[in-house]
Simulated assay, not measured.
Amino acid sequence: MINDNEFRAGYIAIIGRPNVGKSTLLNKLLHQKISITSKKAQTTRFRIHGILTDQQAQYIFVDTPGFQTQYTNRLNAFMNRVVTQSVQNVDAILFVIEAMRFDQRDRDALKILPKNIPVILVINKIDKVADKNQLLPFLNSIAGAFDFSTIIPVSATHKIQLPELLNTIRGFLPRNPPIYEKDDITDRSERFLASEFIREKLFRLVGDEIPYSTSVVIDQFNVENHLYKIYATILVDKANQKTILIGKKGEKLKQIATEARKDMERLFSEKVYLEVWVKVRNGWADSEATLKSLGYE
């Protein structure tokens, strides 16, 4: 039983430059995949709440896009706005960096952090450091970059020190009853997660440039007799991108849909029927009206 008198609940923003492992950290903390990941920067575009409830606390993690120091279209500007807004009304902030890497992009991201909210510096990917004796000098070299409440080295991928991180976070959360139901894992709908799983496969299975010129629209989402029927459209900016996404005899698009469907079935715990099309919509990433229609606002 949860004792509300001692129970803590609150919001924790996960902030950092692109590709430091923020979404992987969230998924590993939740023991469930809700935030898409890839090795390419800018995979995460939306703010996503990931919810973890145990006997002592409810942690509501706010996963955010990587903070961009240079951007060229309205989509990138939208993502930076999401990051800036996300740090304003939380109880604690996890500022994530990569072990042995701290450069001007990290320093620029630090500038958006408020001074009145506790900031935990999370040094991720420590498993990739061959000589662990290098960690302490690295830690000391960046400790003065900001008034961090504490510093915790972790490996999100291998779940190293994640229990210690949760215990530290709990100390910064206010005494509150649970905000969400104990079985909730996200504030996002299954429809939204379906679109994100498709978009993840674009980042993982297609060349370096094309995923940034794509978005995913769920045209239909129905559940009948334990079968999810999902019809989706991938928007691209140019006709040649459509050709690449479809691939020879439709093989690339089939691979994208198949792998996305498997992720959906794991999350929904039901069978999924998925159909995906590709359409060209020129300039969608710089069109304010189109971005709003796709949920970027």
Rank of each mutant, 00 (worst) to 15 (best):
N89I: 11
V90E: 13
D91T: 07
A92T: 11
I93E: 09
L94R: 11
F95N: 07
V96K: 06
I97W: 03
I97R: 04
M100D: 07
M100I: 13
D103Y: 10
R105L: 11
R107P: 01
D108V: 05
D108H: 11
A109D: 09
A109C: 13
A109Y: 06
K111W: 02
K111L: 12
K111Y: 05
L113C: 10
N116G: 11
I120M: 09
L121A: 01
N124K: 09
K125C: 03
I126E: 06
D127R: 03
V129A: 06
D131F: 04
K132A: 09
Q134G: 11
L135Y: 03
L136W: 03
L139T: 15
N140R: 12
N140D: 10
S141P: 04
S141N: 13
I142T: 07
G144C: 09
G144N: 15
A145C: 12
F146S: 09
F146L: 09
F148M: 01
F148Q: 07
P153H: 05
V154D: 02
T157F: 12
T157D: 13
P163C: 05
L165I: 01
N167T: 12
N167S: 15
T168D: 02
R170L: 01
L173H: 08
L173T: 05
L173F: 07
L173N: 10
P178R: 13
E181I: 06
D183H: 14
D184T: 15
D184S: 14
D187E: 13
S189I: 04
S189N: 07
R191C: 01
L193R: 08
F197P: 00
I198S: 01
